[in-house]
Design a protein around this nucleic acid. Structure first.
Lengths: 115, 115
DNA sequence: GCTACATTTCGTCAGATAACGAAATATAGT
DNA sequence: ACTATATTTCGTTATCTGACGAAATGTAGC
């Protein structure tokens, strides 16, 4: 395992949208359209962010009908990933943007959005 | 405190040279020319990396004659910085590049380099 | 104040990144 | 098979980043 692989893990966290996604997923699993609605970005942009987080192992996906749900990967094999995953629960909880996102996770309705 | 400030902290860790610098400084304080020698980059490039790490609070500098020494900031006020600082001690120790750098920290001699 | 040395700042350039819309793919129901 | 919906992939564009060398700044000793 070389340094480049580890750098990619840190790069995955170096974007406000991806940090917001991870903190949202700490509330519950979400489909792409729900995340898109909350972030207010293009679907393709969100899909790309999700693939970056998935490729390094922060999140995992599972299909549910026509939806693709994403969830936190709670069993990362990589120790760097594991350490970062742990602190992600403790940090950023006092940030306004994060608090607003989490509130929206409770009220967002995939049926209403994706019609 | 907004999300953008926190993102900058993660960005500071999203570069192989800056990770290497932080792990080197865990051995001991180093001056710019010693770090430059070990990384094999231009002095100006290293100086820029150091300013990025210093600006977010990972490291601090102190002058010693004509040298500028950099050291780990062990009392970060920001909680994100504190969490990341802690895990930085536990991770990357098994990476070859990091191990080689640390060995060089023991043998490098600023007088010989900066002649 | 001149000289030597250490570091920072500046200007430039190539490559990476995040954004978008459009097109392609996948799935469910008719 | 056709349609509608959800997501991904692709091509493009503007901005960010990391690299360098050259010039500027700071410090110590003569």
């Amino acid at each position: 395992m070389n340094l480049g692989v580890k750098v990619k893990i840190f790069k995955a966290l170096s974007d406000p949208s991806r940090l917001r996604i991870l903190k949202m997923l700490q509330v519950r699993s979400l489909c792409v359209c729900e995340i898109t609605e909350i972030l207010g970005l293009a679907t393709s942009t969100v899909s790309n962010h999700l693939s970056i987080l998935r490729d390094v192992g922060f999140i995992a996906e599972y299909k549910e009908g026509k939806w693709v749900n994403y969830k936190i990967n709670n069993n990362p094999t990589d120790p760097v990933l594991g350490s970062l995953n742990s602190i992600m629960h403790a940090i950023l909880n006092d940030i306004e943007d994060i608090q607003r996102d989490k509130k929206m996770v409770y009220t967002v309705d995939r049926i209403a959005i994706c019609r």
